[in-house]
């Protein structure tokens, strides 16, 4: 428990700082009240609007932990939303639409996983293909229109309320819990981290990296499908052009804020989810605090730069070098611990 707290402390502190900062500019930010049987207020809004990025961040965390990246999730959202809307549009009902959309997401993930794990194409290159083609495919499904629908059940997915909380908030919280349980209660998490840290050694220890990589990209596709369903339900229509546009970048950012190294290895889904909420709090906060929304991107840019500084291997080496040098001069201690090259 304390280990977990220590792991997510930086993210929690950042979230806290963002919340405090927004509250200073917009005092009513943290107030939550009841309107009928549902909770209302800015925090609830953050939980709802942050849902797509939070969902994407779950899959992205796992992909990045294997030293990969999935650029296609935004486009996959559009495809899955389009598939679901088209199914509803044809009167097949929600019972067919949801499985079809989830299936489309899994299929997209399988494609990415095939390119990465079997053809051994770099992840960034492999997923670029679907990132480019995906929106075309989505438009193909919707025949280029914004496919609107009036299915109340579908709309409920995006804008309904369940037990006081918006359905999208439930979706990412539940998905997060399920994913967290799956990776930590099974051995999936360990094997993913192992492959991300040292693929060669993992293979020699008997880890089936091919199946693992494909699985991870399929999970990412599945998360994108759920996010696509929510966005589509929310606006009661599938917009192949704009659904999930640039959300892959926000998702990667959420993972980076969550402290999972882009070079693979140790990951925390919880920290990525907090990262997603940090991003959404900034988005909502800027709006509420009366800043023009145009500040949003500049703040994001500064945020990315700060994370870069913190994660930079060169800077941390320098810092460690500084620390050891100081320790040496202070205590006359022997050799530094951190050595990049060992004798052969």
């Amino acid at each position: 428990m304390t280990a977990l707290l220590r792991r997510i402390a930086p993210q929690l502190l950042t979230l806290l700082a963002v919340l405090v900062l927004v509250t200073v500019f917009f005092p009513g930010f943290l107030s939550v009240g009841f309107s009928g049987d549902r909770l209302v207020g800015s925090p609830i809004d953050v939980l709802k609007r942050g849902a797509p990025v939070a969902l994407l961040a779950i899959g992205m965390t796992l992909v990045i932990a294997t030293r990969g990246i999935d650029l296609s999730v935004g486009a996959v959202m559009a495809i899955c939303g389009a598939v679901a809307a088209a199914a509803v549009d044809r009167g097949w009902g929600l019972g067919a639409a949801i499985p079809l959309a989830l299936g489309a997401g899994l299929l997209c993930g399988l494609w990415n996983g095939f390119l990465v794990a079997v053809l051994r194409i770099q992840p960034i290159v492999a997923t670029l293909i679907l990132m480019v083609a995906g929106r075309g495919i989505a438009q193909l499904v919707t025949a280029g229109q914004i496919l609107t629908f009036s299915d109340e059940g579908f709309a409920f997915l995006g804008s309904g309320t369940f037990l006081g909380l918006p359905v999208p908030a439930w979706a990412w919280i539940l998905a997060g819990i399920v994913a967290g349980l799956v990776v930590r209660r099974t051995a999936l998490g360990l094997l993913i981290e192992s492959v991300g840290v040292n693929l060669r050694a993992s293979r020699l220890a008997g880890v089936d990296s091919t199946v693992l990589l494909v699985t991870v990209y399929m999970i990412s596709g599945l998360c994108a499908a759920v996010a696509g369903l929510i966005v589509t339900g929310d606006i009661r229509g599938a917009d192949a052009n704009n659904a999930g546009l640039w959300l892959e970048l926000d998702a990667i950012l959420a993972v980076a804020i969550g402290g999972t190294s882009l070079l693979g290895g140790r990951f925390s889904i919880l920290a990525s989810l907090i990262g997603a909420m940090i991003i959404q709090s900034i988005n909502t906060g800027i709006l509420l605090a009366g800043f023009p929304p145009e500040f949003n991107l500049v703040i994001k840019a500064v945020l990315v730069l700060m994370i870069l500084m913190l994660q930079s291997p060169r800077l941390s080496d320098a810092a460690r070098g500084l620390a050891t040098r100081r320790r040496r001069t202070d205590e006359g201690a022997a050799a530094p611990r951190a050595v990049k090259e060992a004798p052969r």
Binding site: A187, L190, L191, E193, S194, V197, N198, R200, A201, S202, L204, A205, G206, V207, D208, G265, R266
Partner: peptide, 19 residues
């Protein structure tokens, strides 16, 4: 080829069995 450097002693020992 051997160790998974960032993972713990426990995880490294359990890895092959788990895989």
């Amino acid at each position: 080829d051997g160790i998974i450097g960032d993972l713990s002693v426990r995880e490294n020992i359990a890895l092959a069995l788990q895989a």
